[in-house]
């Protein structure tokens, strides 16, 4: 028997009638302290700030379809006052090392940094929106709007057609949208903030207006002399994916019947990624019709480069000049 007196009266109608609660065989619990998020379950209610959020599911690790593990610290929730669906990110601090090529970088999951970014980009259509609030134990919970849209990489795949058709019909528009994303990152950097995890699946294409929106700002890293280098590296990788619609590892080229040994033989180590050497950045060797100016931007991220970008603004300015010329 559920003791409904634990919950404030004004949320009871929505709570009792919600399918998540009706389908449960146990009474929902109210969590004012979200520290131990592994004990929070489907149908429980989070009390964060002045809001009551019913847990209706969990987001999943979505990195390119490899792991689909539910993220218990990122429940899908239903706001029992507004009736809106949201995503809650509970406080989860972790420190770990990422290996990029043969280099190691220390990374941090930082709720505080994500909260600062959310505050800065409030109302900016090129970023996910939301707010941050503390629970009773002082944990910083971020409550995010759900974006009705699709990951950039899936969006590009779903455009269909051959690469040439994609490039001729869609690429300029995609690049123009991406330019706004680049400006968004520049805005963060101007305020001393990083995105922290720039990847092609961390841009969502909004179904409503087609805008690209950045998501997931809770990663941070420690590179005191080049604080924004990993963001720049990420932007280069996203541009490469936009132009090629996939990443090409040398072995992929060798095994591709349309390219094979002939294209493979034309590659050298200078064509590969500067940092990871795992993918081809000299994309004109794969698709010769890609304009040189775009390829030149990519080549600044290649092992063969003599000049690296120091800032996102430099990358942005080159991209603007190039898009104007396409």
């Amino acid at each position: 028997m559920t003791d409904w007196s634990l919950f404030p009266p004004h949320i009871l109608p929505k709570l009792r009638d919600h399918y998540a609660v009706k389908s449960m065989r146990r009474a929902p619990k109210l969590f004012g302290d979200t520290s131990n998020f592994t004990s929070i379950d489907y149908g429980d209610v989070l009390h964060v700030g002045d809001r009551y959020l019913l847990v209706v599911g969990y987001t999943k690790e979505g990195r390119f379809g490899i792991d689909e593990q539910p993220k218990q610290w990122v429940p899908k929730v239903y706001d029992l006052e507004s009736g809106e669906r949201k995503i809650a990110k509970l406080t989860f601090h972790e420190t770990y090392t990422v290996t990029i090529g043969h280099l190691e970088v220390t990374c941090y999951r930082s709720p505080e940094k994500e909260a600062r970014v959310i505050e800065l980009v409030k109302g900016n259509p090129y970023f996910m929106q939301g707010y941050s609030s503390q629970d009773q134990a002082g944990n910083l919970v971020r409550v995010l709007d759900v974006i009705q849209g699709q990951r950039l990489d899936k969006h590009l795949e779903n455009l269909g057609g051959t690469h040439r058709e994609y490039f001729d019909s869609h690429c300029k528009k995609i690049l123009s949208n991406f330019l706004e994303s680049v400006r968004g990152i520049s805005l963060l950097h101007a305020h001393g903030l990083k995105h922290g995890d720039i990847r092609r699946d961390h841009i969502f294409v909004d179904h409503a207006d087609g805008r690209f929106r950045w998501i997931d700002f809770d990663y941070d890293f420690y590179l005191p002399e080049r604080p924004f280098a990993l963001d720049l590296f990420g932007l280069g990788n996203v541009l490469l994916f936009i132009l090629g619609r996939k990443n090409f590892r040398p072995a992929d080229i060798l095994n591709d019947p349309d390219m094979g040994p002939e294209v493979f033989a034309g590659l050298d180590t200078g064509d590969l990624s500067l940092v990871a050497a795992d993918r081809v950045f000299n994309i004109r060797k794969i698709y010769p019709y890609i304009p040189k100016c775009l390829n030149d931007i990519l080549m600044h991220f290649s092992a063969g480069t003599q000049v690296m970008y120091d800032s996102v603004d430099e990358f942005h300015d080159d991209l603007v000049a190039c898009i104007d010329r396409i």
Partner: peptide, 14 residues
């Protein structure tokens, strides 16, 4: 290396 310079920076080069 170039990769180290890109990620970690080089004070002398700067």
């Amino acid at each position: 290396s170039k990769a180290e310079e890109f990620l970690f920076g080089s004070i002398s080069n700067a």
